[in-house]
């Protein structure tokens, strides 16, 4: 069981590091993705363009390395809840957007795909949170 937990922890952390890297390498595209959601005032879109990938990178790296694990898991869980909320809001409003979760590489993923993916990751994060890591 311990090995399963380690694998899940490293995998979840790696996904966040990967997502952060894709965003940081194409900030313009990520800026556009945030704009499409139409949830933030334009003045906050640019700060969020910088902050979110860095928050993902920090949390993902710490989770992978097994440092400040519970704080990193809390960060990731909060991020996932926010992402799911934003995706559901976009879906309900019928916005035609791609997730933007992994930069431009997941442009083909639908909003529903992204919601399911985030729910699975949130379940993993909650599972790990309940374990004595």
């Amino acid at each position: 069981m311990k090995y399963v937990e380690i694998i899940l922890r490293v995998l979840l952390g790696a996904l966040f590091v990967l997502a952060a890297c894709f965003k940081l390498l194409d900030l313009g595209n990520f800026y556009k993705s945030i704009t499409y959601y139409q949830l933030l005032p334009l003045a906050l879109v640019l700060p969020m363009t910088y902050f979110l990938p860095v928050w993902e990178l920090t949390s993902g790296l710490l989770l992978m390395l097994g440092k400040l694990t519970r704080g990193a898991l809390l960060s990731i869980s909060i991020m996932l809840l926010v992402f799911i909320g934003a995706l559901v809001a976009a879906w309900v409003r019928g916005l035609d957007i791609s997730c933007g979760c992994f930069g431009s590489i997941d442009a083909g993923a639908t909003v529903i795909d992204a919601i399911i993916r985030d729910i699975v990751m949130l379940a993993v994060a909650i599972f790990l949170f309940t374990r004595k890591l």
Partner: peptide
């Protein structure tokens, strides 16, 4: 946990 979370947020 909250202290760690706060540190991660501040660092970010």
């Amino acid at each position: 946990t909250f202290l760690q979370f706060g540190f991660i947020l501040l660092l970010s």
